[in-house]
Design a protein around this nucleic acid. Sequence first.
RNA 1: GAGGGUGUAGCUCAGUCGGUAGAGCAACGGACUUUUAAUCCGUUGGUCCAGGGUUCGAGUCCCUGCACCCUCACCA
Length: 554
Amino acid sequence: MSSPSRFALALTQPGEPNHPISDVFMNQQPPPQSETSKAQDSKDPRVARREKLRQIEARGLDPFGVRFDDRTMIGRCHQLSSEIRWTREDGTDVPLPDFDDPDLDYRQWKADHGPGTETGPNVRVAGRIMLARGQGKLIFLTLRDWTGDIQIFIGKKQVGDDDFELAKLFDLGDLVGAEGRLGRTNTGELTVFAESLFFHAKMLEPPPDKHAGLTNPDLRQRMRYADLAFNDGVLQTFLDRTEIVRSIRRTLDNEGYCEVEGPTLHMIAGGAAARPFATHHNTLDMPLTMRIALELHLKRLMVGGMERVYELGRVYRNEGISPKHNPEFTMLECYQAYGDYNTMMDLTERLITDSIEAIGGGLIRQYDGKTIDFTPPFQRATYAELFQQHTGVDPSDEAAVIQYAKQIGLDPEDTHPDVVRNEIFEAKVEDSLDGPIFVIDYPASICPLTKRKRDNPAVAERFELFILGMEVANAYTELNDPDLQEKLFETQLEGQDEEDSMAKMDHDFVRALRHAMPPAGGLGVGIDRLVMLLTDKKSIRDVILFPLLRPENA
RNA sequence: GAGGGUGUAGCUCAGUCGGUAGAGCAACGGACUUUUAAUCCGUUGGUCCAGGGUUCGAGUCCCUGCACCCUCACCA
């Protein structure tokens, strides 16, 4: 976080002038007693922080601050550094040296070019104290807001005895403010030379290790606020996630899509194969499930005339937790009337390349030490081709497929041949798909919501996008034939448990299709996995702010 | 669900063969007006995840439980 964030909007802050807290806040109340005063508490760093809080109050300041207007965001300070001038006594400006040069000795440079004076714009910054270096009657702080870090110079002579006493009550993690001139220290570091100080909020808990941060993964997830505040890059990852989601909305909005909000409580958890969370409505005395997909309601809307429609929202699947699975996760589903799965392939590429543009870093990216080239068009290959390539077995040769399944330890008995094929595909092909690659044309019987190819009803017009073995997107030419849909809902594939089936009878959905849904392409994207890939994060928990955890031990 | 790993100071981590509980950072006291994870001197700080067992003696060995991580299974 030492470089300014690309969250450009945050660099300016609306507001009115305000006043140092000492002018507007006079707290005459006695300081509150700390909750406990047991002997062992003297060992606890929290006690020292409570004591400083009391002393801040005793100085007539609110240890939890007041409004602070006309703030200069720290990223903006870095931009304003170009306004720093070095003026000789004769009034001429000397161009400043290159402060990025690690060998620069600014003290020497000033001696060589002086005598003169450095001037710079006045700024008012606020943020969290990340580092503090005391040096007698001097204190250096490293202050961080969400646009970057900057150093604050606090000299006893410069801020006065009063503010210097206040600065001695600062702890790592406190939120403070400073007003003063922007300039450079002898080493050339951009610095706010404080003339007055402000106190905004006391951190009463001890901060994590100032260098290592909070590394305990359990604590990082339970105390995400501390993870965000003290671990480098965490905030940026989540800001990147926001940028990716914004970009996806922008891309779809620009293409004329309309965003909607479907119900999250479903009577029938359809649209995907997954176990749902069960819940209950009391007044209606009715069992309900949390949605596992967005699909069936968005298609109902296409029947109603929403020709380009999408929803970007949370779905819930009551299944295992792993580095790639969280019980609730974010899906995008979008549907385009009169399109097909090829339409959605092109759209998928635009959604991803636009997202990359939004967070920067280029189309060729690193993930876990591997390189992913997102330059479109992405590779395309059929399911059957890849099957043949990776297994050496012709997927249309049923006997050979069964033979191969037994060979790799699968049990093909009483199981539909397409399910067997797919188990082989998942076991032997998916993991080696580095991609980005569109796998197209799936066996029809495992795709009950997908239109079949006109010339080959055994194949469904479906693709999945794989990147480094991870399924990122899934799309169909949507099945809009109500009679076939009803039939597919009735067909339970052999060897498949009911809860594993995507085909759950939904009479209302079939009735909707009977009102005529236009031929359409539909796409689903796992947003969390896309964010993982674009931000180089190995665990879905690193891109979900508050992943599901077991309750904390008391 | 199975296997493996981890759990020690506020944080990050050592802890040998079973023999008085350690370091760095943070905190507290002191020196220092251009530092950069500031430095230097000094001090304080422990339910060794929980419970049980073996033992003269357990952070260490054994059993049970809990939490987290990893791999696998499940899960498009």
